[in-house]
Simulated assay, not measured.
Amino acid sequence: MSHTFHISKSHRHLKWDNSLQPIATVPSGSTLTFDLLDGGHNQFTATSTTASITTFDFSLADPAHGPIFIETAEPGDVLKIEFLSLKTASYGWTSIFPGSVGFGLLHDEFPDPMLKIWDLESHREEGYTVFKEGIHIPINPFLGVVGVAREQEGEWSTIPPYETGGNIDCKHVTVGSILYLPVKVRGALFSCGDGHAAQGDGEVCGAAIETPMEVTVRLSVVKGMKWVESPHYVTSQQHTANLVRGGAKGEYASLGIDADLREASRKALRGLINWLVAEKGLTREESYILCSVAADLKIVEAVDMPHFGVACSLPLGVFVGPPYI
């Protein structure tokens, strides 16, 4: 028998903690709908401006909605999460927080705050949002936070990812995708949140297109998948087709080479920003935000020590009109 449950935005927590009381107990195979706050706890609205950043409370960031107790889930099992529907709000936001906050891959090079509000409604049917005239960003909704409780006791921040999921920020786990998480406690204690309308691999400025979201998932307990010791996922055919279509015009990429993987990533990102400023006429802040929502960090070389090679690549398909083409 199919079961459907609804979880409101009021049922949220800011720490992973296996002692939290579940807000619902559901059988394996149940479908759940969630009304989610955005990753900033809805502190920004469609009318917010850069001045709003000064009052942002980081202690409220990345709320997770739940937890959900799934019957028959035991340590050693795997929780299968099927993403059935992901609908963004009519607006989203991307921010550059001041360099002193220490948020973002190049936070020390961007001392000034910036907040961009995105219109996610006007071109919803066409599947994109406008960065600025001549630059379109494909909308590809997904959840940044998807996880189950850790086996370790105590409170654990919702901001980093863990082997049990959490803030994995993986843009490939979208509608039609399946995510597998290792169960560490009885009932699994599933939670989710942090809706994104679009993001590049790396989320380099510290924010994607953050948005409240309506979500439908199916949760099923799977026995015997002993190889799943961290998040594993299967993408949908549609997502793969979207990636191919989005890169149909090719990519421009900058390579970062360094013995430190993070520094190689910083060099790659810095190079792509420099190209956007020099060749496309964007400001450094605009370039940083564009990279965060549309460019991908890729490890292209990891065996020829002592150096790593990291590419920061931007699909040229985001440029749709003058003065950018």
Rank of each mutant, 00 (worst) to 15 (best):
I137Q: 01
L181R: 03
P141K: 10
E125Y: 07
T4I: 14
C291K: 14
M213F: 12
F58S: 12
A278V: 02
V228Q: 01
S52Y: 09
P75S: 10
F44A: 08
H239F: 04
N274T: 12
G195C: 06
A89K: 09
A188N: 05
E126L: 06
P141Q: 11
I7H: 06
I178E: 02
G200I: 06
E210K: 12
V148M: 00
T129W: 05
K171H: 12
T235W: 05
G127M: 15
L255E: 11
K280A: 04
V215R: 03
H307I: 15
K223T: 09
V148K: 03
K80N: 00
H13R: 15
S48R: 05
H172M: 11
Q152G: 04
E155V: 04
A64S: 09
A248N: 05
H6L: 02
K184G: 10
L297F: 13
T158V: 13
Y162G: 07
D296A: 09
T50F: 05
G317Q: 07
S48K: 08
T31I: 14
D17K: 03
S90E: 15
P67W: 05
I299A: 06
G250F: 04
A259H: 13
Y128S: 11
P141C: 08
S100F: 12
V130L: 11
C192Q: 09
L261D: 00
T4C: 04
C312S: 15
R245V: 07
G187Y: 05
E286A: 10
T4S: 11
E203W: 00
V78H: 00
T25D: 13
G127T: 14
K116Y: 14
L316Q: 11
A51S: 11
P212S: 13
A248M: 02
T4Y: 06
E285M: 11
M305E: 13
D112F: 12
I135A: 03
D201G: 04
D108R: 14
T283E: 02
A264H: 01
E71G: 01
V303R: 13
L14N: 09
A197R: 01
D194M: 04
F97Y: 15
S48G: 10
E133F: 03
V277G: 01
S236P: 09
T164E: 10
P22D: 14
E263V: 13
A64V: 14
I289A: 00
L314I: 09
F5Q: 06
A89V: 09
G165T: 10
G246W: 05
E286Q: 15
P231Y: 03
G134K: 07
Q238Y: 00
P22A: 14
D201N: 14
H232T: 01
L37R: 04
S177G: 08
L115H: 11
E155H: 11
H65V: 10
E279C: 03
P212Q: 13
P161M: 08
D194Y: 10
K132T: 07
S287A: 15
F69K: 11
I70E: 04
L255D: 12
K280D: 00
T31W: 04
Q238H: 08
D201A: 12
G250I: 13
